[in-house]
Amino acid sequence: MRSARLSERPTPDDHETDSMPISDWFKAREQRNYTTPTEAATTSDLPDGVWVRCEGCKRTLYMGDLERELMVCPTCGRHHDLSAPERLAMLLDEGSFEEVDAHLRSVDPLQFTSGKVYSEQVAAAVQRTGLGEAIVTGRATIGGHRAIVGVMDFRFIGASMGSVVGEKVTRAFELALAERTPLVLVTASGGARMQEGMLSLMQMAKTAAAATRLAAAGVPYIVVLTNPTMGGVTASFATLGDVLIAEPGALIGFAGPRLVEQTIRKSLPKGFQSSEFLLEHGMIDMVVDRRELKDRVALLLSYLTAGDE
C-alpha cells in the first residue's frame, strides 16, 4: 500500500505513472469551476487569486477570501463543492492522512460503449482530477481522534459508485472494523455507475452489508452528506451511519428532482431534497456549517468512543 501525506511537497520525481501524490492534487484546482456554466470557459483558464462569481448570490468574490472560508460564500453562506483533497485538508489534522488502496482502478467489465466509451471516460477522469477513482480513503486524525476516513469527489464521473468505489468503501468499513477505529465518510454522488451495470448495483448491497457488520461490532460510523448525494449511494452505506450530518443546502435524496417532477407532473416545493428539508422530516441528525464541521465531527467522535475509555 502506498501512502502519502497532505503536508509533503512533491518533487517531480515523486510522480508515479498512474497517480499523483495527494499534495499535487491541489495543482488541479484551476480546472475546477466555481462559476455558472456559461462563464466557466473564461474563468477556468485563470490561475488562483482571481475574482469568481458565487453560484448562490451571484456576487463576485475574491478567490482568496472564499478559500479562507473553506469555499463558503461569506455573503450568502452557499457551500461550494470541494474536491476530495480540499475536503481532506479542511477536515483532517494537518499531516495526519495516510492513504490506503490508492492503486485501485476501474476496469470496463461490460465493455460499455453506448454513448462515451467507459474506459476512456475513466481515463479522462483520472487525467482531469488527478485521482485514481471517485473516492479517497485512508487513516487520519480529526481533532486528535483517530479515524478511518473516506471522501468522495463529484468531479470524477459524478462520484458514481462502480466496483472500485464500492470496493474502497467496503475496505474502509473492514479497516475500521479490524482496527476498531471509527469511520467517517464524506459522501457526494450521483448514484450507481450505470456503465458497470449490475456489478455497480450490487455494490449497494456489498457496502450496506459491510456497514452492518461494523455496526454489529459497535464501532462508530459518522456520515457527512454533501452536495449532491443521490440514488444508490443514499440508498445504501450513506444513510446507515450512527450519526448523519449534512452540509447546508446540499441536495440529498433517492430519485433525482427532475424525475420526481416528471412523475408527479407538478413543480417541486422550494427546498425539496435539501439538507434542511431532510432535517425537518427527521431523516438526518444535524445540518452543520462547513466552518464548524471539523470541530463537530471531533466532538461526536469523543462521544461515540466514550464507552471505550
Binding site: 485501485l104 467489465p109 466496483s163 456489498k206
Partner: peptide, 11 residues
C-alpha cells in the same frame, strides 16, 4: 458472496 462482486484493477 457479496464481497466477490465487482471488477477492479490494481487490487
Amino acid at each position: 458472496r457479496l464481497r466477490r462482486i465487482g471488477e477492479v484493477a490494481g487490487g
